[in-house]
Structures are given as structure tokens and as C-alpha cells.
């Protein structure tokens, strides 16, 4: 049971970091991306390749993940600069769909549907992190480190300009803000952190394949942010815990035929999402309605 809980805690930390990184785009930048799993995926594949071919050192793996995801985030920044609102959502949707196919087809790099197997246990500067406690500590450090960086940046002038941009692009432009630069930076920051989370994820699972980087995953992460509350530091964490623990708790539901449990869990999860949005649209950790 301990091993199971530790595993869950590691995943919660990694997904918390991922959700927080999406919050930079959605909550602070107003860039509504449904392609975040793509950058999580870039990070995971890059990290897995480093771990398999060079060294499973956590620092190197997550740095590689962050770097690759950050550089490739231009694919998202480009449409973000050109279009807004609904159009951008659809653009990111397109990016997500194309990336899923590309992940499946680029077998030499991604292993296709079969995935990359046999990723060695993680290390830190030569010390083994095979113990789940040690790796949990690393995940938590990454989570709180990431949160600290985001808090610092969002409280600073960058964050304030970004939020001004979110609330009114034309007003921000009128005040002489460099809209293109701000948006590109926000995308790069969010995607780099997502890539770091991806690298950790590859080490945690010791296996990556395209199933973890589909539209469903993007929507799940987005739901974590929105259910928790956009534009707040705690929101994504609350959402992550809720959406990770809810299905786990639902598996204890009695009286459902085993083959249907999956579907019933899904139905409850979907219903919870819809009801929450109807009755608490600002999210669990969000402020009262009307003043996002």
C-alpha cells in the first residue's frame, strides 16, 4: 500500500507541475491551449532518449525535456500571435491532432505505439534514486521549485504585463507593451516547465508511449487548471489532486459489474466537470464570480 501511495504522490507532483505550467498560458496569459500534452510529450520523449542513451540523471533528463519542449513551443506561439479566442483553441486542437499522429509515426524517435521501454532507474549526480521516497522528494522539489519561479515571475512586471494583456489586449498595446514578445515568452515558459514535467514523467513510468500525450490528456490537464481555478497559484494543485484522486476513490464504488466500472467512473468524472462549471465557474480555489 505504501508503494502504491508513493507512486500516486509522485504522479500528483508531476501532474501538479504540468497543470501549473498550463496555468501560465491559460490563467495568466489568456492563451487557451488544448495542446499542452504535446509539450509534455516532447519533454518525455527527449528525457527518455537521454536516459536511455546518455544517463538517467534527473537534472540532465529534465533539462533536456524542458529545452526541447521550450524550443518547439514556437509551434504554439506562432498561432497564438496571429489569432485569439476560439480561433486559437481550434489551432491548438489542430496542433494536438497532428502531433499525436506524428508521435505514432516517428518510430525511430518515439517507438511508435510500442513506445520506449526499459528506461533505467533515475539518478542524481551519481546517486541512485531507485527508492520511491528519494524520487518523490525530487518530484516535490521540482514542483515547488517550479511554483516558486512562476510566483516570482507572475508577481513581477512580466506577470503584471501578461495579465494586463489577458484582460485587454488592445489596452496593453496602447500602454506600449510588446504583445508579441510577452505572448511568446509566456508560451515558452509554460511549455518549458511542461517539458521538465515530461522528463520526470518518463523516469517515473520507466516507459513512454503516445497514449500519454493525446487530446484526452490535454483536456484532463486543462480540466485540472479550470476546475481548480485559473490564474491562481493553488488552483492547479487543487484541481490535480481532485482529478487524480476522484477516479481512485470511485474505484471503491460497490455494486457495479467490473467491466463497466471504467465507464461509470468516466460518467461521474464528466458529470462532476459539467456541474462544477455550472455552479462554480471560477473553480474551486478561484475567487467569487465576476472578478477573475
Amino acid at each position: 500500500m505504501t508503494a502504491y501511495l508513493l507512486n500516486l504522490a509522485q504522479l500528483a507532483a508531476i501532474f501538479g507541475l504540468l497543470a501549473a505550467s498550463l496555468n501560465v498560458l491559460v490563467g495568466y496569459g489568456g492563451i487557451f491551449s488544448v495542446a499542452h500534452a504535446v509539450f509534455f510529450g516532447f519533454g518525455a520523449y527527449a528525457g527518455a532518449q537521454i536516459a536511455l542513451n546518455v544517463t538517467p540523471d534527473v537534472l540532465l533528463v529534465s533539462a533536456a525535456g524542458g529545452l526541447v519542449a521550450g524550443v518547439l513551443s514556437l509551434a504554439l506561439a506562432l498561432p497564438a500571435l496571429r489569432v485569439r479566442g476560439e480561433y486559437f483553441v481550434v489551432a491548438s486542437l489542430g496542433l494536438q491532432m497532428v502531433a499525436t499522429t506524428a508521435f505514432t509515426e516517428a518510430e525511430p524517435v518515439t517507438g511508435g505505439l510500442g513506445g520506449l521501454v526499459g528506461i533505467p532507474p533515475p539518478q542524481l549526480l551519481g546517486f541512485s534514486l531507485a527508492s520511491p521516497w528519494a524520487f518523490l522528494a525530487v518530484c516535490l522539489a521540482a514542483l515547488f521549485g517550479g511554483l516558486a519561479v512562476m510566483r516570482l515571475l507572475m508577481r513581477g512586471s512580466f506577470g503584471r504585463s501578461l495579465m494586463a494583456l489577458r484582460d485587454s489586449e488592445s489596452a496593453a498595446e496602447a500602454f506600449g507593451k510588446n504583445v508579441a514578445l510577452l505572448k511568446t515568452l509566456a508560451v515558452a515558459l509554460g511549455c518549458t516547465i511542461a517539458g521538465v514535467a515530461g522528463g520526470l514523467f518518463a523516469l517515473q513510468m520507466a516507459f513512454v508511449n503516445v497514449e500519454s500525450f493525446t487530446l484526452d490528456q490535454s483536456v484532463l490537464v486543462l480540466a485540472m487548471v479550470i476546475v481548480g481555478g485559473t490564474g491562481t497559484l493553488a488552483g492547479p494543485l487543487v484541481g490535480t489532486l481532485l482529478l487524480l484522486l476522484l477516479p481512485a476513490a470511485l474505484s471503491f464504488l460497490p455494486g457495479i459489474p467490473p467491466t463497466e466500472i471504467g465507464a461509470v467512473q468516466q460518467a461521474i468524472y464528466g458529470l462532476a466537470m459539467a456541474l462544477l462549471m455550472i455552479f462554480r465557474p471560477a473553480g474551486l480555489a478561484g475567487r467569487a464570480q465576476g472578478k477573475r
Binding site: V26, F32, G85, E86, V89, V219, L222, A223, I226, V227, T230, E260, G262, A263, V264, Q266, A267, Y269, G270, L271, A272, M273, A274, L275, L276, M277, I278, P281, Q289, G290, R292
Partner: peptide, 24 residues
Amino acid sequence: TGSFFTVFVAAFGVVIVVQSGIEI
């Protein structure tokens, strides 16, 4: 004053409910 995001997540929730209902 629900935002565009809120509508998106709520609708997605409904889609999931319909899909699982059909599965059952």
C-alpha cells in the same frame, strides 16, 4: 458571466457523460 473556458469544460464534461452512457 461564464467565460469561454467555462463553457468549454462544461460541454466537454457532458460529452464524456454521453460517451460513457453509450458505452454502458
